[in-house]
Design a protein around this nucleic acid. Structure first.
Length: 134
DNA sequence: TTTCTAACA
DNA sequence: TGTTAGGA
């Protein structure tokens, strides 16, 4: 339950997502227009993406490389979304949480997001990010 | 400085 | 998709 919350918690702005996914802001926004993703927004209308959103975008990028059009990809993604809301299917391999608490994760990301802005934007984050994917 | 929407070369 | 205008 805590894991799901962590992965769907809106944490990063589009700039970070661009680095994480290697997609342009234009593409990311366009995919949203086409209904492939639904990031949340801040009160000032800025998009905030979660780990799930990022993985989704990476999947989308993959499908596109394989030659699928956006409509087709949307349908495939819709199926994954069928088991909507908390319905973590009993067959779904729920990734077990790393050795960091919710609070630590948030703190870690917050710190990185800030420092990343002053150094090597990508390497830092991507390196740490690998700890959350297994 | 970063992100947003809308629109067009 | 890229890019830019114009604003928040």
């Amino acid at each position: 339950m805590a894991d799901q919350f962590r992965r769907s918690n809106p944490l990063f702005p589009i700039g970070i997502v661009q680095d994480l996914t290697q997609l342009t802001g234009r593409q990311i926004r366009y995919y949203e227009e086409q209904g492939l993703i639904s990031p949340s927004r801040t009160e000032s209308k800025r998009r905030l993406y979660s780990f799930n959103d990022v993985e989704r975008l990476l999947a989308i990028k993959d499908y596109i490389d394989q030659g699928f059009n956006l409509a087709a990809i949307r349908h495939m993604l819709e199926q994954e979304g069928e088991k909507e809301a908390e319905t973590t299917a009993p067959t779904a391999p729920v990734n077990e949480a790393p050795k960091v608490s919710e609070k630590e994760l948030h703190q870690l990301l917050k710190t990185q997001l800030q420092e990343a802005g002053r150094f090597n934007k990508t390497s830092l984050i991507q390196g740490e990010l690998s700890r959350f994917y297994r």
